[in-house]
Amino acid sequence: MRVRALMTAALAGMAMLATQTTATAQQAGDPLSEKQWGLAQLRAPEAWSTSTGAGQIIAVVDTGVDLGHPELASKLVPGATFAACGDRPAPCGNGDWRGVDGVGQASDVHGTHVAGIAAAAANNGVGIAGVAPDARIMPVKALENGSGSFEEIGAGIRWATDHGANVINLSLGAQPGTQLLTLLGQGAETKDAIAYAREKGVVVVASAGNETAPLCDTPSWEAGALCVAATDSAELHSVYSNLTLKSDMKAVAAPGGSSLNGCDGDVWSAVPRGTGSAECGQGDYDSLAGTSMAAPQVAGVAALLGAQGRNADSIEQALMKSARTPILGARGVFTPLYGYGVVDAAAAVAQPM
């Protein structure tokens, strides 16, 4: 059973799109922050006066990270590799995106992009700002060439839990229908690892999936994971995003991009140096869309909350109770499109402890 990274292909070309901008002092130090409409939708800059995520570690269990990227190099804690170890005992590497063979696969830019969304350095003179700019990143490579097994992912989750992660981000998912297999106890390594992490007080955030299906994909379907659907720059449910239905109803929404409106309609973040697409014109950065991009927005806000001294239950409750439902204007009300709503960092950090 294989699990894949969850992003959609960004369309070529620059569309004329009215997007929100951060309009904060971050722009002076992070040249691409004016394109980060997601930060404005999350109201992250308004939360930074209360918390920037200092002291929190976000484990990105994914395709690995470019360990030398200027957005991330100063933010990293030791990581590990569990994908494609072959005959070598796992972990067999340090979480670098190139993997044990030293070759960077095109699809493996994914983990660096996810890590940048969550916690890229701010005011460093290049690129973007992360949602939790003072949190640190733990790179855990559990996917090679964009996919991995439940066993590899589960091992990565357990390793991250045992090595100090406060938040685990899972921007990955299996095909719709796999939920039944895990309910029947098959492919349970990732499901059991999520339960283990949650028991240890770690917040687990996972992508809903990109199949326009009604249910959250596994692993976001599993108990203990917070399922995240995607929104576009107009705060509408993204056309590709799965809905937020799952048995425990732990689900929210966050900026994931449209996949229909060109580079600035999607989510800008770091990619391994030199791998940025020609269409979007930034060698070390790129714009991608998917629920993969939505989950680390929420992981970043979870780190802001964790830095306030909240435990995992309190973090989840603050995220869900303060989230807002577009159009309706309600907060903390469940709908199939948005779960409990679009995550609002400023309102979340103001929730009672």
Rank of each mutant, 00 (worst) to 15 (best):
V103N: 11
V103M: 06
G104A: 10
Q105C: 07
S107F: 04
S107K: 11
S107G: 06
H110W: 00
H110I: 02
H110N: 02
G111Y: 03
G111M: 04
T112Q: 03
V114N: 01
A115Y: 05
G116D: 09
I117R: 02
A118K: 00
A119H: 04
A119V: 04
A121K: 12
A121M: 12
A121D: 13
A121T: 14
A122N: 06
N123I: 13
N124K: 08
N124I: 14
G125T: 13
G125R: 12
V126M: 13
V126Q: 15
V126R: 15
V126D: 13
G127A: 09
I128W: 11
I128G: 11
A129N: 12
A129P: 05
G130F: 12
G130W: 07
V131P: 00
V131L: 04
P133V: 08
P133I: 07
R136F: 07
I137S: 10
M138G: 06
P139C: 04
P139M: 03
P139R: 06
K141G: 03
K141F: 04
A142N: 01
A142Q: 00
L143G: 01
L143D: 00
G146E: 05
G146A: 03
G146H: 03
G148D: 06
S149K: 10
F150H: 14
E151P: 02
E152A: 15
E152L: 10
I153W: 02
G154N: 06
G156E: 07
G156F: 03
I157Q: 05
I157R: 01
I157V: 15
R158H: 09
W159L: 11
T161F: 07
D162Y: 07
H163V: 06
H163C: 11
H163T: 07
A165N: 08
I168H: 00
L170W: 03
L170H: 08
L170K: 02
S171A: 14
S171M: 02
L172E: 04
A174H: 08
Q175H: 13
P176T: 14
P176R: 11
G177T: 10
Q179N: 15
Q179A: 14
L180K: 14
L180A: 15
